[in-house]
């Protein structure tokens, strides 16, 4: 099933904190806190799931052309991170869930017929 950013927000009980919905669907999901690893993935339209709350995450997301970023455990998001997300137009979602829970819920959503 196609998953848009609004589906991500609903599925993860999250909130769109910055950036705008670009109308792009999730092409692949990468759950990682190591930006070095994230850069190794060549998939298109990546939804990046991370516990790292810094503007570097947004810069990394922009480099790989990610369709969205989700930060977990309800971590407070620095102003610089939100600003970077707004500048690059990358949807930034905050969720109270742990990363593993997000992975499970997204998998369930994408597996629906």
């Amino acid at each position: 099933m196609t998953m848009m950013i609004e589906d991500v927000v609903k599925t993860l009980d999250g909130k769109l904190v910055a950036g705008a919905d670009t109308g792009r669907a999730v092409g692949a999901v990468v759950a990682n806190d190591l930006m070095s690893d994230v850069l190794l993935d060549d998939s298109d339209d990546i939804l990046l799931l991370t516990s790292l709350a810094s503007d570097q995450v947004i810069r990394t997301a922009n480099i790989i052309g990610a369709m969205g970023v989700v930060v977990h455990n309800g971590k407070p998001l620095p102003e610089a991170m939100c600003q970077a997300a707004n500048n690059f137009g990358i949807p930034l979602v905050s969720t109270p869930l742990a990363k593993y829970q997000s992975c499970v819920r997204i998998h369930e959503f994408l597996s629906r017929e």
Binding site: L34, M35, S36, D37, L39, T50, L52, S54, Q56, T60
Partner: peptide
């Protein structure tokens, strides 16, 4: 802690 330093930088640039 900032998400870097995994030792992939040069290898990934080359890749």
């Amino acid at each position: 802690s900032m998400g870097f330093g995994a030792g992939m930088g040069l290898a990934n640039s080359k890749r």
